[in-house]
Simulated scan of single mutants.
Amino acid sequence: MLRLKELRTKKGISLNKLSKELEKKYGLVVSDSQLSFYENEKRRPRDETIWNDIADYFGVWVPYLLGNSKIRTEEQAEKLAENISELNSSLANRSWEHKLGTIDELENQLLFYFRELPDTYKKFALKSIENIFILKEENDDKGGK
Rank of each mutant, 00 (worst) to 15 (best):
G144K: 10
K20A: 02
D32S: 15
W96E: 11
L91D: 11
I129W: 09
L15N: 14
K122V: 00
E137L: 00
P118N: 06
D53R: 05
R115Q: 09
K17I: 09
E138I: 14
M1F: 07
R3C: 02
N16D: 13
Q76V: 00
I129D: 07
D141T: 05
A55R: 05
P63Q: 11
V60Y: 00
E138D: 13
K10P: 06
T73V: 06
L87T: 08
S90K: 10
P63L: 11
L135I: 08
G143N: 01
Q34P: 04
L106Q: 07
K25L: 04
K127G: 05
T49R: 09
W61R: 02
I13V: 06
S85F: 15
L65R: 06
V30G: 05
R115E: 08
L18C: 07
I129P: 03
Q34N: 12
A125M: 09
G143A: 02
A81C: 14
E97R: 13
S89M: 15
E48P: 12
I84H: 11
V29Q: 07
N52T: 14
M1A: 10
L80T: 03
D53Y: 07
N68S: 14
K79R: 15
I134V: 14
S85Q: 15
P45L: 13
I50A: 11
K70H: 10
K11G: 12
L28Q: 06
E107H: 01
K122D: 00
R3K: 08
E74T: 04
S85R: 15
S31M: 08
I134M: 04
P63F: 08
A92L: 15
R44W: 04
L126A: 01
L15W: 13
S33R: 02
